[in-house]
């Protein structure tokens, strides 16, 4: 038996919106301590990893580990039934064939229920090595979104360079070339802060198209954390207050 109730259901709605363009079918792992999922996009370039702790739920019960195979496209359609102020409850029996999703609005007394059919997914689970990232950049999520969006109109690829003084996003395309450079900024206004933690500088190139997809999660978190290592994929991380973390991994583009 699994049951989890989230008071701020909008968070779950936003999570589904933030992953539905990247992954199609996903195995959701239920454990007594929380909910997690890991899935790659069809081209194996990007990976979504979500971890939600039971502590963030108003009510959480999972007697055993369970795997719930879900079509994210269909889950997104069901989530559209939810009002932004709804509480969301997820329920599944042992050996479940469907996931029951309940939306409740205590103010308007409206309740919506949907039984989403589960599917069997043969997915490859990748073991992600523990990595000490040599550059970690914490940046306002709205600002990072905007930078990626605007640069994409100029080039398909961005080169991210880090050093102890700044992080630089540079592009080169038919239109010309240029860069946005952000220095370390720990100003009193928290939302303006850009925090650089660089032990070794990194220079890598990435497809901006994917970054734009990841940035749909910027409504979940005021800050985006970019974790870089010269020999490793980029991690774009969105912390979800009191609940968990949504991470995206992106393989770099490599020069011939």
């Amino acid at each position: 038996m699994f049951e989890a109730k989230l008071t701020e259901g909008l968070i779950l709605k936003k999570i589904v919106e933030s992953i539905k363009d990247i992954v199609t079918d996903v195995n959701i792992d239920i454990s007594p301590s929380g909910i997690s999922l890991q899935a790659m996009d069809s081209s194996h370039v990007a990976l979504v990893s979500l971890n939600l702790s039971m502590d963030g739920f108003e009510h959480y019960r999972a007697d055993t580990n369970m795997v719930l195979g879900v079509s994210i496209a269909n889950l997104a359609k069901v989530m559209k039934l939810a009002d932004n102020n709804d509480q969301i409850t997820l329920q599944a029996d042992q050996e479940a064939t469907h996931l029951k999703i309940i939306f409740e609005n205590p103010k308007t007394e409206r309740t919506t229920e949907f039984n989403l059919n589960l599917i069997t997914i043969d997915s490859e689970h990748l073991a992600i090595p523990e990595t000490e990232y040599s550059s970690v950049v914490t940046i306002n999520s709205g600002e990072f979104s905007k930078i990626c969006k605007e640069l994409f109109s100029l080039s398909e690829t961005v080169q991210i360079t880090t050093n102890t003084d700044y992080v630089q996003f540079s592009v080169e395309g038919e239109v010309g070339s240029g860069q946005v450079r952000l220095g370390h900024n720990d100003s009193e206004k928290k939302e303006d802060q850009t925090i650089l933690e660089v032990s070794e500088s990194v220079q890598q190139q990435f497809a901006i198209r994917y970054l734009n997809m990841f940035n749909k999660a910027s409504t979940l978190s005021s800050f985006t954390r970019l974790c870089l290592h010269q020999e490793q994929p980029l991690v774009v991380e969105f912390k979800i207050d009191n609940l968990g973390v949504l991470k995206y991994f992106l393989a770099p583009k490599i020069s011939d």
Binding site: H125, L126, A127, F249, A251, I254, S255
Partner: peptide, 14 residues
């Protein structure tokens, strides 16, 4: 010219 790498090159199949 750049080529897009795949995650499989970095992560092991678990």
């Amino acid at each position: 010219k750049t080529n897009q790498a795949r995650l499989d090159c970095f992560f092991n199949q678990g």
